[in-house]
């Protein structure tokens, strides 16, 4: 009896969790594409909204996806390299200020760079006057700002993982004449793969979904990331273009959702040890 109640409660919760998703799928397939006239099961379901979305000259949708994927990929790869190398040094080498620096990294990243957005904007604006390809409206400038936040909690995470790998492995290699660089690239990096996958996916998803900095630094439609594009698209005639928006939201969200659900165990493990999505 109690179990039955529990199952019913769980089903109610699942309905709460999935209703918006079901609703957006139905909106994307509903050819009338109006917010007010939508049914949960659209009468003449079709791909009209997707066709309209991808051919709309005001909304360079493929471009936005490409921008987002490009920015997120580059940021993820660079920030992973930066963090992993730093984590190696913190775990394996001994140098002055090691603990102080570890603490400082923890403290500094607590201040979200969102709070300094005025300063970041002005700084990128000024940089752009000197090096145009790093200024406002450039993806390189945005990536640099994202990378500024990469020395963070993830260093702790990877360092923690490295600390669990016995030093005997490195020492043996050192006796054989391996350099630090060889130990790092050939011995430890392969062992780090599981944690790097989790940290990398979370970093990718975080960058892919980032809105504020991209919104401030990019202001031309062809430069937008997908999140900025979708958000600004909804400023105009949201209700009329509901179907098109839904199609876009679906394309934007689905790949991430699938990756997440496939890797949910690893990601849950990463989350409990302190990784963050944002």
């Amino acid at each position: 009896m109690i179990l039955l109640i529990k199952v019913i409660l769980a089903i109610v919760m699942v309905l709460f969790a999935l209703f918006p998703v079901a609703w957006i799928v139905s909106a994307a397939l509903d050819p009338t594409s109006q917010l007010g006239s939508q049914r949960l099961i659209p009468p003449n379901a079709g791909l009209v909204n997707f066709e309209k979305l991808l051919s709309d000259p005001l909304m360079p949708f493929w471009r936005w996806i490409w921008n987002s994927v490009k920015i997120a990929t580059i940021t993820t790869l660079l920030s992973l390299s930066i963090t992993t190398m730093a984590a190696y040094a913190f775990s394996r080498l001994r140098f002055a200020g090691r603990i102080t620096m570890l603490k400082a990294i923890m403290l500094i990243q607590i201040f979200p760079n969102l709070l300094a957005l005025v300063a970041i904007y002005l700084m990128i604006q000024q940089t752009g006057k000197i090096v145009p390809w790093l200024g406002l409206e450039t993806h390189a400038g945005l990536i640099l700002v994202y990378l500024g936040g990469s020395m963070g909690i993830n260093i702790w995470l990877i360092k923690g993982f490295l600390d669990t790998i016995p030093r005997a492995i490195d020492e043996a290699a050192m006796v054989d004449g391996a350099t630090n660089w060889q130990i790092f690239t050939q011995l430890l990096l392969p062992l780090l793969r599981p944690i790097l996958v989790v940290v990398g996916i979370l970093a990718f998803i975080g960058t892919y979904g980032e809105f504020v900095l991209a919104r401030i630094l990019l202001s031309r439609a062809e430069n937008y990331t997908l999140m900025v594009g979708l958000a600004l698209f909804t400023d105009n005639q949201f209700a009329q273009n509901w179907g098109q928006f839904s199609a876009g939201a679906l394309i934007g969200a689905l790949p991430i959702m699938i990756v997440y659900l496939l890797l949910q165990d690893q990601i849950a493990g990463g989350l409990t040890s302190g990784a963050v999505k944002e």
Partner: peptide, 14 residues
């Protein structure tokens, strides 16, 4: 888990 997997910006707009 699904709500957590959708990018926040998209969720809010939905």
């Amino acid at each position: 888990l699904v709500p957590y997997t959708i990018p926040t910006v998209i969720t809010i707009l939905i």
